[in-house]
Each structure stands twice: as structure tokens, then as C-alpha cells.
Simulated assay, not measured.
Amino acid sequence: MTRPTRLSKAEIRKDAVQDTVTAAATTVGQVTAIVTGAVKDVAGSLGGLATELFEIRDSARRAMDDEA
């Protein structure tokens, strides 16, 4: 019969700290990816809005030129 391997308190603490740091790093990576994607989406939307505003301005100018 083999005896189960017993871990020291220091080994258990080391494993707990290692698992905590790994979990935190993974979460930070996931949140960073979410934020990066959101910033990209917002920039794209604002760029689309700017394009629309330029087109509206140009249409308004053409309409005013046609009136004159």
C-alpha cells in the first residue's frame, strides 16, 4: 500500500498564489481584448458618422448652389 503524497503548507500556499496569479492574468487579458475591441468599434462608428456629416454638408452646399 502506498501512502499518499502530502504537500507542505508552503507548497500549498505556492500553488494557491500561482493559481491566483494565473487566473488574474487570464482575466486581465480577456478584459483587455474586450476593451480593445470596443475602442475599435467606437472608432469605426465615429469615422462612419464623420463621413455621413461630410456627405450631408456637401449635399447642403450643392442644394444651396442650385438655388442661387
Rank of each mutant, 00 (worst) to 15 (best):
K40D: 15
R57P: 02
L7C: 09
A50I: 05
T32H: 03
K14P: 00
G47C: 02
A10F: 01
A68L: 15
L49I: 12
V31H: 05
D66M: 14
T36A: 13
T5M: 05
F54Y: 07
A63P: 03
G48R: 02
I34A: 13
T20D: 04
E67T: 02
R6F: 10
D15P: 00
K14Q: 08
G44Y: 02
A23D: 07
S45Y: 05
A38H: 12
S8F: 02
A25Y: 03
L46V: 06
T5L: 05
D65N: 14
M1F: 08
P4L: 10
A68C: 13
T27V: 07
R61H: 11
L53H: 04
T36W: 04
V17D: 08
R3E: 11
T27N: 12
T2S: 11
D15C: 00
P4E: 11
T20K: 07
T27D: 10
A38E: 10
V21P: 01
L53N: 07
L7N: 07
G47I: 01
T2L: 10
T5S: 05
T51A: 11
M1K: 07
D19N: 10
Q30M: 12
A63L: 15
P4F: 04
Q18W: 09
E52M: 08
T27C: 07
T5W: 00
T2M: 09
L49F: 05
S45Q: 12
F54V: 08
V42F: 00
T2G: 08
A68I: 14
V39P: 00
A16G: 00
R57I: 13
L7F: 10
E11S: 04
M1C: 10
I12E: 08
A38R: 14
A10V: 02
V28F: 09
A38K: 14
G47P: 01
R62G: 12
E52D: 11
F54I: 05
A25I: 00
A25E: 06
R6Q: 13
D19T: 06
G48L: 05
D19A: 12
V21Y: 03
G37W: 02
A50C: 03
E11V: 01
A24S: 11
L49K: 09
G29S: 08
S8G: 01
A23P: 02
D15M: 07
V39I: 15
R61D: 12
S59N: 14
G44S: 04
G37Y: 02
V17W: 04
A60G: 04
R62N: 14
D41M: 07
I56E: 12
R62M: 11
A23F: 04
E52V: 06
E52G: 01
M64P: 04
D66I: 12
T26I: 11
G47M: 03
T27K: 13
S8D: 04
V35D: 06
R57N: 15
